[in-house]
Design a binder for these strands. Structure first.
Lengths: 217, 217
DNA sequence: ATAGAGTACCTATCATTGATAGATTCCCGG
DNA sequence: CCGGGAATCTATCAATGATAGGTACTCTAT
């Protein structure tokens, strides 16, 4: 779906992938300069020494280009998250994880829009690309369970907090850090709330659902 | 800015405004059907018995149409917020306010996108339209101070929580209420956090920076 | 009543967009 | 050296937002 496949990975395949990467890079540049939806295929082609129809040898359509960018963006996100040294202790790691996410969002606004806001009419990531998104969600879920948080409602609340930080940072202070530096307080707030609810439910019902967890911080 | 002004409010003015409203309604319809960025002026014109160039008697450009929709959307939001009966007690009222916001977002996704996410390349609300947005922000600020919350950081955190709820609801469960019904818990979480921080800062430093405020609830 | 002004439309046309068809060039294996 | 396929081109399409200029209607002032 994403690309028109090279039938076999022959010697040409490498050159092709190089060019493919160049196109993608140019697409990101244009998206940042003119807006995600304002990418012009002619402009894009010109930047990689091609004519506009030749792009269709690499992408089936413009939406397919967006799909490739979507996958590329998630690969970048996964790289960032995985490359980051995980702190000792699940909760400090969670704080770092959130801060990393907000920073990632602000580092490239159009990338954030493409990955997390459905803004391009008609665009829907292919299953292959969406798998990368799920991979990321799984990582986030693991970090939460490691921090002793479980339950669908808690996951939803957490995702809302993180999304909100990113959203506000991107929309109201692009390039700044007004909400980036709220990552710590926000996670603190969230975890305190989880604890609070667990404690109160524990007093009412003597069997706490979650196993007791260490409180670091 | 928003519209090409009727030089005088003559008898025709009324008809003109009627038609103007019709165009706007049709624009919302098309936005919901095809996506915000995919509105076709020819299609839009056809739905109000006009030819495409005639729309330029009502809007200077397509971006200007978006500006009119932006203002219209905020007027709707202000109407909803003001029409809602305010509960007794600032904090229950705040919960209601948040729930109302999330509901408003899900009720019309493209409207949410236009008002709160900068997705249309080149679009920036005119100062007149943006004034409506500020009006809304002011209302939210008032509700917060009424609930005993102050400080820029708290406002930012609050806005992030609300935005996050809307964002996730719209993106991941459009039409549902997975995050709508988290409005209550989220506000509770937020207020508990504010209280917690105030309490701890009060014990450490006997002079709280913010003037003491009544703690209701 | 009627000329003039001005509004509200129209048709015709433009440049640009994403997309397709078909010809051409280039490279590599036989 | 030559045939096939990949890569790219030119030419063209329909649809888009925008502009120019003309036409019909309506109200006002003489």
């Amino acid at each position: 779906m994403t690309t028109i496949e090279a039938t076999t990975t022959d010697r040409r395949g490498q050159r092709r992938e190089e060019k493919w990467a160049k196109i993608l890079a140019a697409a990101w540049f244009l998206a940042q300069r003119d807006g995600l939806a304002a990418i012009s295929l002619r402009d894009l082609a010109g930047r990689v020494e091609l004519r506009q129809p030749s792009l269709y040898a690499y992408f089936e359509s413009k939406l397919d280009l967006y799909d490739a960018m979507f996958a590329d963006g998630y690969r970048q996100l996964l790289d960032v998250v995985r490359a980051h040294p995980s702190k000792t202790g699940a909760r400090p790691a969670l704080v770092d994880f959130v801060r990393l996410n907000v920073q990632f969002a602000t580092d490239d606004i159009v990338r954030f829009q493409l990955l997390f806001q459905r803004t391009i009419p008609g665009f829907e990531p292919s299953t292959a690309s969406y798998a990368l998104a799920l991979e990321f969600v799984a990582i986030a879920g693991d970090m939460l369970t490691a921090a002793g948080v479980s339950g669908a409602e808690n996951l939803d609340l957490f995702s809302a907090v993180v999304a909100g930080l990113c959203d506000q940072q991107v929309a109201n202070d692009p390039g700044g850090d007004r909400w980036v530096c709220l990552a710590g307080p926000a996670v603190e707030m969230f975890l305190a709330d989880v604890d609070r609810r667990n404690a109160s439910s524990a007093t009412r019902a003597p069997k706490p659902k979650q196993p007791s967890r260490e409180k670091q911080r």
